[in-house]
């Protein structure tokens, strides 16, 4: 109850301070130490978190926020699922050996986190549940939502906003601006390269493939995905018009590619389970697809993660440009 009152007050203060309900804001220090200003951030669950000073010891329970924090120059003291992060998210700084693995993203070890004595925990909305109360006992928890549903922002805009929000609570707004400027520059650069290579406005489909129960499963990225939105910024056109889920993907089979085979295919597959060179290569549909016959099915680096933060996005842009020969 008390916490809720505090949260509401903090929100009201933030609103009064900058004249906007959009959190977060560096609070105008009305009390407390001169050096460290209080900071606040509003979570996707509507709960605002206020810290007396920017957080330095942060635990990240989701890959995207791990990437965001690293991009901001903050190495989290604890990270969930380190091994898989290292495998799947290859852009940006590495975290292995510099942080503590706190277990799975779904059920991170509360004890490990307690032992780290963090001053902020960053969690993903769809994963927290049973453990939210326990996490709050350990440290303030900001619950973020990767999909940005309900914010009215596109996933790309939301990714940028999330980075800025996080920057506030770790006191790295300048870093955030630099990172986002870097991303903008990357978009512009790639756009330019594509134009020079005559690839501007190319129709494309981007997909991630893996082996399902008995056949390859393809995740095609729809217009509401971060990848499609960012590639649109670079002047490319997403050919896939299927229904994307909250993460912007449609899980389907090889046949669906027939709908988009006039376009260029950009695909991601792990080295261990490359369905595009494996099972699909023997499939007559795949063999007959226009982009396969005309050599427009282009691999991206296996480490290209499609649901990440700014560095992953830059990697996607670079990989796309390279694949298209720009």
């Amino acid at each position: 109850m008390l916490r809720r009152v505090v949260a509401v007050l903090a929100l009201a203060m933030a609103a009064a301070a900058c004249g906007s309900t959009a959190a977060p804001t560096a609070g105008q220090a009305t009390r407390g130490a001169a050096a460290a200003k209080p900071v606040s951030i509003k979570g996707a669950d509507g709960v605002a978190v206020e810290l007396k000073a920017p957080a330095t010891k942060v635990v990240s329970l989701e890959w995207t926020y791990t990437e965001d924090l690293l991009a901001l120059g903050v190495t989290p003291v604890g990270v969930a699922d380190v091994d898989n992060y290292e495998t799947w998210v290859t852009a940006g700084e590495r975290v292995n050996g510099r942080t503590t693995d706190v277990g799975t993203r779904q059920e991170p070890s509360l004890e490990k986190i307690t032992a780290l004595a963090p001053d902020l925990i960053v969690a993903e909305k769809f994963r927290v549940g049973q453990n939210l109360d326990a996490l709050k006992q350990i440290a303030p928890v900001v619950v973020l939502d990767y999909t940005g549903e309900g914010t009215g922002r596109t996933q790309y805009a939301h990714m940028r906003q999330t980075l800025k929000d996080l920057a506030v609570v770790v006191g790295r707004q300048a870093e955030a601006d630099r990172v986002l400027a870097g991303l903008d520059a990357k978009i512009a650069e790639v756009k330019g390269r594509l134009e020079k290579a005559g690839k501007a406005g190319t129709d494309y489909t981007v997909t991630q493939g893996y082996t399902g129960e008995n056949a390859p499963v393809l995740r095609l990225l729809a217009d509401n995905s971060l990848a499609a939105q960012v590639l649109a910024e670079a002047g490319l056109k997403n050919a896939w018009k299927g229904k994307g889920d909250s993460w912007g993907m449609t899980e389907t089979d090889v046949e669906a590619l027939k709908q988009v085979d006039k376009a260029t295919l950009l695909y991601v597959a792990s080295d261990k389970d490359n369905v595009f060179t494996g099972a699909l290569a023997k499939n007559p549909i795949w063999q007959g697809l226009a982009f396969v016959k005309e050599k427009r099915a282009l691999p991206l680096d296996p480490g290209t993660w499609l649901w990440g933060g700014p560095k992953t996005t830059e990697q996607l842009l670079e990989e796309t440009a390279k694949a298209l020969g720009a």
Partner: peptide, 11 residues
Amino acid sequence: APGVSDIFMGS
């Protein structure tokens, strides 16, 4: 049309 037989045989 071209490709239709692939669809049939492949899927």
